[in-house]
């Protein structure tokens, strides 16, 4: 049915969004002014431009310069980078909510800033990010259907092909309903996994409430 393409796209874009988003959040919070400002502008741009425009930019843009990008890669990049901007905001909020005393105590022990961030600040901030992050997960999962706009044959595109044929008119609603169900199941499964992670990582005094 093409749902597998959506799942692959989801995994690719969320991983890209996580890595880039985390780096951007760290830059925004800890890097010197000019760099931090760059990260802010990055976030502002990617959150401000409609996703469809981003998809077209990443798919048709390189073509102008003679570089052919597959629809899948373009979708991962466009949706992944867009998600990184949102994820950066989630991580930034969590990083900034860790009391300054945690950093002071780590530095007083003789840890470098990098050690303090990786052993003290991040383990706490990531736990606090989980609730907001599960929200972003549900959101990007549904975004994968947008990739049909640049011709990626995923589940929405398949559904479109079926329903376009006039003879299939009676199938129009059932097909859409089926697609909706697929996404509902995926959302449920993903959130259940995140919930499990939350439970396993729970630490008294660092609870995250949804």
């Amino acid at each position: 049915m093409g749902l597998l393409v959506n799942v692959e796209l989801l995994l690719g874009l969320i991983a890209l969004g996580f890595v880039v988003g985390l780096v951007m959040a760290l830059v925004e919070v800890y890097a010197p002014r000019p760099l931090a400002f760059g990260a802010t502008v990055y976030s502002w741009f990617l959150r401000g431009v409609p996703e469809l425009v981003l998809l077209f930019l990443f798919f048709f843009g390189p073509e102008q310069f003679g570089i052919r990008v597959s629809a899948f890669l373009a979708a991962v990049l466009a949706l992944g980078l867009r998600s990184s901007a949102y994820q950066a905001q989630i991580f930034r909020g969590a990083l900034q909510s860790i009391p300054h005393g945690q950093m002071l105590a780590a530095r007083a022990l003789g840890m470098s800033r990098l050690q303090a961030i990786s052993h003290v600040i991040l383990p706490q901030a990531l736990r606090l990010s989980l609730a907001g992050w599960s929200n972003e997960f549900s959101s990007v999962l549904k975004d994968t259907s947008l990739a049909s706009a640049i011709g990626l044959v995923e589940v929405m595109r398949r559904a479109g092909r079926i329903t376009k044929d006039p003879r299939n008119l009676p199938l129009f609603l059932p097909t859409l309903f089926l697609v909706a169900c697929m996404f509902l199941v995926l959302t449920y499964a993903g959130n259940a996994m995140i919930g499990l992670a939350e439970k396993r990582l729970r630490v008294p005094g660092l609870e995250m409430r949804r």
């Binding site: 005393g101 945690q102 105590a105 780590a106 007083a108 470098s112 383990p123 706490q124």
Partner: peptide, 20 residues
């Protein structure tokens, strides 16, 4: 600085134990 700090203990008013 990190080497020097490792030789000097510091106890804070509000403990600042690592929460996690």
């Amino acid at each position: 600085l990190n080497r020097v700090r490792a030789k000097i203990g510091f106890v804070f008013q509000d403990f600042n134990l690592f929460t996690h």
